[in-house]
Every structure is written in structure tokens, then in C-alpha cells.
Design a protein around this nucleic acid. Structure first.
Length: 390
DNA sequence: TCTGGGGTCCTAGGACCC
DNA sequence: TCTGGGGTCCTAGGACCC
């Protein structure tokens, strides 16, 4: 039997937050709509811009005040995550009707494994069309799809014909596809890597293709070198291979004006700790590692983490460690722009039971108490009490 | 015109051990 | 007393993505 042809569809909701708002508010339709904050917000950035707003040059991650300059007649709103999550759920549910293997990557995108679904739904490119149609009919939203034999190529392909787009990287055309792709569209090549590539005379994917792997290793390191070597040949498979090694939960906040007083800093840390602790409990996670992050007025960012010998189970403990770390790290002469806290290396309950057996304090405490009992039996004249009861 | 918030992964250096 | 070479683990910082 020949190898089964694998097919992955990457589906991306077009200008998701803005599109939901335009659905919910007819008065926003056909107008430049910017989700992110009010034009007067000092340090907000654009979360999503409607396609009408993009015509003015507004795009994601742009400071709001800059978007306002480019598009003073735009409608600026803060957004409503609860509503977007609800719509996202509805769309993802549709995907599940077409494959048991749906891999949600974020609120607005997912991979759907269409391998072996031909008997049920027909050719994968037809299935892609059916999915687009159903999403449109049932939610009013449009999606852009990329179809390919690897997730990596499907991901890049979904970006080719946005919005309401579809692109199929046909089996056998993978390398051609990559060699015709602008370098900045290569997923995983960001601003810094692009600059680095340019500085070594690489301006196209073909420039990379023409070099030996040893050269790429030497110039960009083994990892990046191999990644680039494979990517331009359409052979990259590591990027979305799954199996995340670690998990973390964090929260951070940027102050509208830099702060200089410890009291505000500590109050903020407490508030952030409460939120993060709540989220950890909600997902039944356990963590021993607390992290805090400080961004100073000049945008330099430092962080420090500490692994405790037991799981952090209460906000009190979490906060007390976070505050200690803050005091240890904080350079008190400098203004603070951002504070963040988080848990790292989160594990689930089952996995953690093993560790609990030997480093949860309860065993030690028990051992100590047993020792005390023994001692008291032997020497009835000695009375041992906990320090706090004396 | 100074640059959000929530994540994951990679790298480089130091500690520690053999 | 001037010193090798791995291997592994940990930490801080940074690149990248949505």
C-alpha cells in the first residue's frame, strides 16, 4: 500500500475581533474599526484593525495614538474578549464536524487534520470549501485557509489569499512554493532574523537554498541553520509537531505612567498574583516556580524566577515569594513601566503525586512529630511544644 | 511617535559532578 | 599553584507568534 497522503488545513479567522464587532453592530460595518483602546489611551496598542482600517496603514501591535493619527475618523473600541471567545468556540465546533483531530492554536486559528477524511467529505480541497461555507452560513464570519501536506506549509498558505482566501500547496510543489515566498513570509523568521539574514547577504529563500547546510549552521547556529535549510525546501516539520515541554501562566500590566513607589508596585503584584493563582487553581495545575518581571522606564526588561521546594498553593505564599523576588531584583532608582508575575513549569495533579510523596512537607512534618513522640516516651520530663504556642 | 498581553522555544553562561 | 573535558541542570534574556 502506498503511503497515505497527509493533509492539513490551517484555518484563520479574518480580522477576527473586528469582524465580530461588525456582525454585532451594523453601524460599524464598512467602516474603519480599531480594537484596542480609546484614541486617548497612552500606552495601548491595536489588537485588531478591520480591513477598512488597514487601508489607512493601521495594523496589529501599532500604538493606538499612531493609529489615530493615520485614521482619525476610525471607530476605536476596547473589545470584548468574552464575546470573541464565544464566537471562537462556535467556529471551532464546526471544525470538529470535519475531523476528530482539530488543533486549536489560538482564539482565531486552528489546524484540522483532513488525512483520511476523503470517504466522508471528498477531496480535501472540497472539504476546505465546505468548511468555509459552513462558518460563513452559521456565524457570518469569513476564514482564510491553507491546505498542504505539512502543518508548516498549511500555516503559511492560509496567509496567501487573505481575506476569505484559500491556497493549496499541491503535493510535489512544496519546494517551488517556498522558493517563491518572500523571506519575511517565512514563518519563524521575524524582524531580528530577517535583519541577520540580510546582513549576511540573504534576501530571498533561494539565497538560503543555494547554501550548504554547514554554511547555514556556521552563520546562524545549528538550530536556526537546520530550520532554514529545511524550510526553504518545504521539508520543515518540527514547528507544529506538538508536545509542548513546559507550561506557564502569567499576568502583567503596563502602567499608563511609570511608577516609582514600592507601595503601588506591591499592590499591583498582589493583584496580579491573585488573578494568576485563580487561573492555576481553575485548571488544577501545580507549580513550584514563581517568576516576576520588571520593565523599566527605558523599556529594559528583567526577570527573576525561583523554584521553591514545594508547590505554591495559596495566594499568600505566591505573593510573599513574588514580593521577595521583586525586592531582590528591583533597582529602586528606576521608574517602572510594567510589572508581571507568573508560574512556570506547571504540572498536573497526577504527575505531581509522585513528587508529593517525597518533598511535600507533610512527610517531613510527620517524621518530626514521630521523633518528638519517641523522645517524650523516653524522657517524660521533657515537654516539647511548637514555638508559636510558647 | 516609544513599543499590550499571553504564551512557547532557544541560547548562553554558570554551577556542579564525574 | 593554574589546570581538561564532558554532561546536565538551572537561570536570565531574547526572538517569535497571535
Amino acid at each position: 500500500m502506498a503511503d497515505i497522503q497527509k493533509y492539513f488545513l490551517h484555518v484563520d479567522l479574518d480580522a477576527f475581533f473586528a469582524s465580530v464587532e461588525q456582525l454585532d453592530h451594523p453601524e460599524y460595518r464598512g467602516k474603519p474599526l480599531i480594537i484596542g483602546g480609546k484614541p486617548t489611551d497612552k500606552r495601548s496598542v491595536v489588537s485588531t484593525a478591520s480591513y477598512e482600517a488597514r487601508k489607512y496603514g493601521v495594523h496589529s501591535a501599532m500604538p493606538i495614538y499612531q493609529a489615530y493619527k493615520l485614521c482619525p475618523n476610525g471607530i476605536f473600541i476596547p473589545g470584548n474578549m468574552k464575546r470573541y471567545a464565544e464566537m471562537s468556540y462556535r467556529v471551532m465546533s464546526i471544525f470538529h464536524d470535519f475531523s476528530p483531530d482539530v488543533n486549536q492554536m489560538s482564539i482565531d486559528e486552528a489546524f484540522i487534520d483532513l488525512t483520511g477524511t476523503e470517504d466522508l467529505f471528498g477531496k480535501p480541497e472540497d472539504t476546505a470549501m465546505k468548511i468555509k461555507k459552513r462558518v460563513k452560513e452559521e456565524t457570518g464570519l469569513t476564514v482564510s485557509c491553507g491546505l498542504a501536506q505539512t502543518k508548516y506549509l498549511a500555516k503559511i498558505a492560509s496567509d496567501i489569499n487573505k481575506p476569505d482566501g484559500f491556497y493549496f500547496v499541491k503535493p510535489g510543489s512544496e519546494q517551488d512554493f517556498m522558493l517563491n515566498l518572500p523571506l519575511k513570509k517565512v514563518f519563524g523568521v521575524g524582524k531580528k532574523t530577517l535583519e541577520n539574514l540580510n546582513s549576511h547577504g540573504f534576501y530571498t529563500t533561494r539565497d538560503i537554498y543555494e547554501k550548504q547546510i554547514e554554511t547555514l549552521h556556521f552563520l546562524f547556529g545549528n538550530n536556526m541553520g537546520s530550520f532554514l535549510y529545511n524550510a526553504v525546501r518545504g521539508l520543515e516539520t518540527e514547528t507544529f509537531s506538538g508536545e509542548t515541554k513546559s507550561h506557564s501562566i502569567s499576568a502583567e500590566t503596563t502602567f499608563s505612567d511609570d511608577i516609582y513607589d514600592i507601595y503601588t508596585a506591591e499592590t499591583t503584584i498582589l493583584r496580579l498574583c491573585q488573578g494568576v493563582m485563580f487561573r492555576l487553581l481553575k485548571e488544577n495545575g501545580f507549580s513550584k516556580t514563581v517568576m516576576i518581571k520588571i520593565r523599566y522606564e527605558d523599556f529594559t526588561t528583567v526577570s527573576i524566577q525561583e523554584k521553591s521546594d514545594r508547590n505554591i498553593l495559596t495566594t499568600d505564599t505566591f505573593y510573599s515569594i513574588a514580593r521577595q523576588l521583586f525586592e531582590k531584583k528591583y533597582d529602586y532608582k528606576r521608574g517602572i513601566r510594567l510589572l508581571g508575575v507568573g508560574f512556570e513549569n506547571i504540572t498536573d495533579k497526577e504527575k505531581d503525586i509522585q513528587q508529593e510523596l517525597f518533598d511535600d512537607g507533610s512527610e517531613k512534618k510527620q517524621a518530626v512529630e514521630r521523633a518528638i513522640l519517641k523522645l517524650e516516651k523516653k524522657h517524660p520530663e521533657i515537654k516539647i511544644q511548637k514555638a508559636r504556642l510558647l
